[in-house]
Simulated scan of single mutants.
Amino acid sequence: MTDPFADVPHEPGAPKPDPIVIADHVHRHFGGLTAVDVEHFEVQRNQITALIGPNGAGKSTFFNLLTGFDKPQTGEWQFNGHSLVGTSPAKIARAGKVRTFQLTKALNRMTVIENMRLGAADQRGEKFFQALVPGLWKQREKDITEKADVLLKRFKLYEKKDDYAGSLSGGQRKLLEMARALMSDPEMIMLDEPMAGVNPALTESLLEHVVELRDEGKTVLFVEHDMHMVRRIADWVVVMAEGKIIAEGPANTVMANKAVQDAYLGAHHDTDLSEDAS
Rank of each mutant, 00 (worst) to 15 (best):
H225I: 10
V133E: 01
E242F: 15
R124Y: 02
D270E: 15
H269A: 11
D185G: 04
I48A: 05
E224Y: 09
E275D: 12
E212C: 02
D192Y: 02
L273V: 06
L202N: 04
V85K: 15
S184K: 11
L152Y: 10
L151T: 02
G217N: 12
A247H: 10
M229F: 14
P200M: 03
L84M: 14
K156I: 14
G53W: 02
V85M: 13
P4V: 03
R214G: 05
T145R: 08
L84H: 10
S88P: 00
F129D: 08
L157D: 01
E42R: 06
D163G: 07
L66I: 04
G166F: 12
Q102I: 07
S88H: 05
H228G: 07
R45D: 14
F79L: 11
L66R: 04
T2F: 03
V238S: 11
K91G: 00
H27C: 05
Q130T: 12
I22L: 14
G56W: 15
G243C: 09
V98M: 05
P17G: 12
G31C: 09
L182N: 07
F63V: 11
V220I: 15
H29D: 06
I144H: 03
G171P: 15
K258I: 01
G13K: 10
A241G: 05
E204K: 06
G56N: 11
D192V: 02
I92A: 02
Q123R: 09
A14F: 06
E248H: 10
G119E: 09
T104K: 00
F62N: 03
G96M: 13
A50Q: 07
V223G: 04
N55R: 09
S205E: 10
E248C: 13
D37R: 15
T2K: 06
Q172L: 06
L191I: 01
D226A: 10
G197R: 01
I245D: 13
G56K: 15
Q130N: 14
P186H: 11
R99M: 08
S184R: 14
L152Q: 07
K153A: 06
M229K: 14
F79E: 09
L66Y: 04
K244N: 14
M188T: 13
A50N: 07
R232A: 03
E275F: 03
D3Q: 01
V254N: 08
L51N: 03
V254R: 04
N257R: 10
F222H: 00
L132E: 03
L207T: 11
L66T: 02
K174T: 14
T145W: 02
D162N: 09
D122L: 02
D162R: 00
T104C: 01
K16Q: 15
G243Q: 08
S88V: 01
D70P: 07
H27L: 13
M110R: 05
P4W: 06
N46K: 15
L273F: 02
M183D: 15
Y158I: 15
M255P: 00
A267S: 06
L176M: 06
E11V: 08
T111G: 14
I22V: 15
L182T: 05
R173T: 09
P89G: 08
G81P: 14
E126M: 04
D215W: 12
P54G: 12
D215C: 09
E242P: 11
R173N: 11
E224G: 08
K160W: 00
S184N: 12
M255C: 04
D272F: 07
L103F: 08
W137M: 00
N199Y: 05
A131K: 10
M183L: 14
A263F: 01
